[in-house]
Each structure stands twice: as structure tokens, then as C-alpha cells.
Design a protein around this nucleic acid. Structure first.
Lengths: 340, 340
DNA sequence: CTGAAAGCGCTAACAG
DNA sequence: CTGTTAGCGCTTTCAG
């Protein structure tokens, strides 16, 4: 079972290897007739170009790397699905590389990675989308990249994102409309750019509704379940008469929900809970979590599409797309028991 | 910023490129002196061998692919962590490839993948670990592989696994010791080999304890949350006086728990719930899920180690390792309210 | 222990 | 529209 190469195809199709190469690279200047013959032969012989050879000769690899450091497996998985789908549709391959920000030398790690593993482009997901050190490495190495949900210098690269502020405002309004006046907010970590936006949306909604910020205490967590649990406990002990908790992601919201349940509170009668993201964790609870559903797979797929398009057209236009979110009002939120 | 190649290192270290190559491939027959000099120069010039060139010349790629079709992102993530860690420690790279069994041509997909993307080995995780069509492709293409948690022909390849039957027996005994006599079991799908083992462990425990199988109804799901919810509803409506539900994975257990909560039952007073896997979903609930914790990351890391070792030593010994599990007794299980 | 030469399978740059 | 000739950066012979 010997390996079949471009030469075998050339011989069989009575053309030169260059012509075969042209066909497989979608280059112009091949007669339809010839092209069809080559493709037929290749199909018949089950030929696949050797990626290493292609990569060595052309200095292209047909590989896109996804750098990530998000602790949420669910989020990662959705990003990967979109990435994989877009890559496959374009004949590219995708690989994943964790880049732990907690490891002081993550930028050096990325640099090492990019030197030994030639990639054609990179996809960045939060929190790496906004990491200056990583972006610097990418630019220095001349690796094109697009970003999912960047917050800073949004238009400095191709990107897809949602309107965090508007989404957060939408959710806060939902709680306000239910009748809540004492709403606690659990913000994300400052390392995530979305934190500012989501907090701003929350505050704007309060302001518009004329609610006192004094009655709406703000806490902050690191997006982890545990930090939500801690914040939830503090909120409950604080004596603020809080009737609703809005957390900047679902993990923390579920943590807060657990704190409430532990304290013997009924959800949503005694305490409404709202999250942000639309991750699986919120589907698999009773009551199910009221949240903002982000189109994560599409964000990633579109971001990859944008990257691949820019690679192929070598266009310099920077494409940025905002995708819509949905408010999922479910069992964890309702009208407050006592309006204060 | 030009690319530095093996030639730059050779020139600078006053040796031939072949010697540099020897050093980087850990080949013998290099004087320590020479080796050190080469390494020093390479370090100073920040040299990294070009993977494509290496791959083209040696017909090795230093890439391990992980084929998977597990719907649980949490499980996948842990497998990936172990894989990544083991690969990195050995200078290998890892890539992921979903292979949806629901897609009729998944075996052909795998074949295509393996022809265009040269990999040195493959890691299989359930349910692919036991897929005959995929195994056939791998063998035909001569791609070495190891498997995580295979159930059939265990010793036909390198593998790591747990003792599913013993673990299931352990959990059932836990429930029996708490005083439960009417225990429902939700089995996994027949496509997963573990289903037989886990069911066998359940039945063995009943038998040993002298409990009647009639009082312990068996259901089956597909490992999804939703299927656990459905089974849970049936169990509650069945009038079997069931006081405990043991599901063959955590997702289904949580589904069953949700069914119980919806029906107004108190967990664990009215109904004890137990799962299997130790995935995040069970940590993030109130009460937390009693479950069997599998060392998923270690299973994957060891399986990868076994694969890499066999690649480098070209030894033909097949290594299989059984790793221990832990019973996590948490809030979702307790003594039954009424002993029947 | 070390080096020189010959490719790996493909694409780039030029000729026709 | 098509073919020829050089490499890409490395490893593998095979000689020393």
C-alpha cells in the first residue's frame, strides 16, 4: 500500500505535476477539461496532498490555532465547534492550545509554539482576546488573527462580539420590570474586558429606572462557581433586602443560587437569580436559570470565516461583526415576594 | 527577522547540519562536548526545528490526534488536558478531531483525515474506544493507537480504564448500606461498552444483599440530561416505592434529580440520587451529587504516555493499566425516610 | 564520532 | 494554458 503522490496523479492524467498542483490549489489557467481529468484521476486513486510537503514548500500550513484560557469547558467546546466547522468548510485544520495566563511565561510559550508549529492564523477567545502580550507576540510573528468578544481596540483586528452593555441592560430591565428594586450585581474579574460593559449596562438600567444604587450592592467574582457562591453568601448576610441577584456569568449565578438554597431561600419566590451566557449549567437546574444566551458557536464560526477570508484574499479590510443575543426568561426569576 | 534554520546553528557551532540534527533527535554518537555546544548555540539563537520539514523528511509528524464523540464537554476537556500534558512533556503536539458516529461515513472521514493529516498516533475516548469500524481504519492505515476505557478486547491495544463493574457495585452497596431496598437503575446506552459492566455491578450488589430485582426497576437512557429526566419521571410515576435512583452517569443522575424536584420530592429525604463519573455538573448543585469519581485526566495522560512510549521504543508489549476510582458520598444520598 | 550527498512531496518562479 | 527547474528545512543513507 504505497503512498500516492502528486506525481502518480500527473502521470495517470498525462499532465505535469504543476498542473495537478494548480488544480488542487484552485489556481486559474487550467482548462476545464484538464481540471476535470485531474480531479477524476485523483478521486479514483484516492489522492490527498501531503500537508507537510505543502507546508514546507509554500510556507503555508492550512492550520489555524485557537489559543484559549477559559476555565469553562462548555464555552470552549462551543468555540471549538464553530472553529472546526469553519475550518473544514475551507479545507483547513484546527488545533487547540491552552495558554494559562497564570503561568508567567505564557507569552513566551506562545512564541515558542508559533516558531515550531507553523500556523496560518490564530483565533483568540476571552480572556486572551484582550491580552496585550499575546497580541504583541502574534504581530511580531506576523500571524494573522481574529478575536472572539474583544473589548479593547475592537477594530484593531477581525472580530465578532455581542453588545455586552446592551445585553446586561436588557437583563437588568427584565428584573426591574418584574418589580425588583433591590438587585445585587456580581461582576466578573477585571481581567475580562466584558466586566466594564456588563457593569455599565447594569448601572444604566438602574439609573434609567430611577433605582437607588445604594440598594443595589455590587460584588465581584472571577467567573467561577465558587466565587458566585461566596458572593451569594455575602449578599444574603448583608441585610440589604436584596430580592434579585444578577451575575455576570452563569457559573457565578448558579453559585449564588446554591448559596440562596443553602440559606433555605426559595428560588424564585424569595430570591430571583439571573445569569449571563446561556451555558449548559443553567439548563440543568431546577429551576432553570434566567440568562442571556450568547451565540457562542456562531461567534467563533464567523470569526474563523473572517480570518480565513482575509488569508485567502489578502484583503486588508478589517471585518467586525456584532451578533444578537437572546433573553431567556426561565424559572429562576419572578416577581419579588415583598416589594420593598 | 529571518527564519533561523539548522544550517545557521551548524555554522555557528562549527559542525555539520547532521550533527545538529543528531542532537535534536537525541541520537547517540555525539560527543558531550559537541552536544553542549550545539545546544548552547541553538538556545542563544532561539532555534526551533521546523515541524513540516521534519515531518516531510522523516515521515513522522510528532502529532497525536484524539478522535472523540462524547457529548459531554466536561469529559472531553479533561481528556484533552491529560493528552496535552503528556504530549508536551514528550515534545509532541496534540490535535482534536470530532468523529460523529451519527454521521454514517465517520469511518471514511477518519480515513480521509489520516491520509491528508499525517499523525504519529491516535488516542480514542469512549464511545469511539470500542468502535470496530474506526479501529479497522486505524489498523489499515497503520496508525498506532491507545484507548481510554475500552470495554471489548481490552488487551488488543494499549489502554487505561477503571473497573466499571466494581465501581457500580461499590455505589449500589453504598445505597444498600444506607438502608435502601427499592433502588432504581438508569443504565447508559448500549453503544457504550460500560453499560453492561455497570449494570452487572448493580445486579451483583442486589443479589449479594438479597434484594428483590422486582423492587428495583431498570431503565435506560442515552447518557443525556434529558434522558435522565424522562427516566426519573417514569420512575416516580411507576409506583414502585423507589427511594433511591442510581444513574450510570452524572448527567442522567442530575436529570433524575430534576424530575424528583419537579415532582415536589425532597432530595435526599424523599429520594436519594447517585451518579457516576464525578463530572462538574454534580459539584454545582444543591445538594451535591453522590457519585463515583473517575480519574479522567489521569486515564488520558497515562494512555497517551503509553502510546508515546510505544512509538519511541517500538516495543510490541501492549500496556494496559487499571486506575482506581473514589466514591464521593455527598448530599444527594442519605437514609430513606421510610424503610419499606 | 562526524560529514556529504540525496531526497521527502510539494509549490514558486520562470519559460514557453 | 502548460511544463521545467529549483528549492522549502530537515532526515536518511552511506562514507569516512
Amino acid at each position: 500500500m504505497k503512498k500516492i503522490t502528486i506525481e502518480d496523479i500527473a502521470k495517470e492524467a498525462h499532465v505535469s505535476i504543476k498542473t495537478v498542483s494548480r488544480v488542487f490549489n484552485h489556481e486559474p489557467n487550467v482548462r476545464d477539461n484538464t481540471r476535470d481529468r485531474v480531479l477524476a484521476v485523483a478521486e479514483a486513486m484516492n489522492y490527498r496532498p501531503n500537508l507537510s510537503a505543502r507546508s514546507l514548500a509554500s510556507n503555508k500550513s492550512f492550520i489555524i490555532v485557537h489559543f484559549h484560557d477559559n476555565p469553562n469547558p462548555d464555552y470552549l467546546d462551543r468555540i471549538n465547534q464553530g472553529l472546526h466547522k469553519a475550518c473544514r468548510a475551507a479545507g483547513y485544520f484546527s488545533v487547540n492550545e491552552p495558554l494559562p495566563l497564570t503561568n508567567g511565561s505564557y507569552a513566551a510559550l506562545a512564541a515558542t509554539y508559533l516558531t515550531s508549529f507553523h500556523v496560518d492564523g490564530a483565533l483568540l477567545s476571552p480572556p486572551l482576546s484582550d491580552d496585550p502580550a499575546l497580541l504583541a507576540v502574534l504581530r511580531e510573528k506576523n500571524v494573522p488573527y481574529t478575536r472572539v468578544s474583544p473589548q479593547f481596540e475592537k477594530r484593531s483586528s477581525g472580530a465578532t462580539y455581542i453588545d455586552d452593555k446592551a445585553a446586561s441592560l436588557m437583563m437588568t430591565n427584565h428584573l426591574i420590570e418584574l418589580g425588583h428594586k433591590n438587585i445585587a450585581f456580581i461582576a466578573g474579574p477585571s481581567s475580562h474586558g466584558s466586566t466594564i460593559e456588563r457593569t455599565a449596562g447594569f448601572l444604566k438600567a438602574l439609573e434609567t429606572a430611577g433605582l437607588s444604587v445604594q440598594n443595589c450592592p455590587q460584588y465581584s467574582g472571577d467567573f467561577s462557581f465558587r466565587s458566585g457562591l461566596n458572593a451569594g453568601q455575602k449578599i444574603i448576610e448583608s441585610g440589604h433586602n436584596v430580592t434579585a441577584i444578577f451575575a455576570a456569568n452563569d457559573e457565578m449565578a448558579v453559585g449564588a443560587m446554591m448559596a440562596a438554597m443553602k440559606a433555605g431561600l426559595d428560588i424564585p419566590k424569595d430570591m430571583s437569580i439571573a445569569g449571563f451566557d446561556g451555558s449548559r449549567i443553567g439548563d440543568v437546574l431546577w429551576p432553570q436559570l434566567t440568562t442571556i444566551r450568547q451565540p457562542i458557536r456562531q461567534l467563533s464560526e464567523r470569526a474563523t470565516d473572517i480570518l480565513l477570508t482575509s488569508l485567502r484574499t489578502s484583503e486588508t479590510d478589517i471585518i467586525c461583526e456584532e451578533l444578537p443575543v437572546t433573553l431567556l426568561a426561565r424559572g429562576s426569576s419572578s416577581v419579588p415576594k415583598i416589594s420593598s
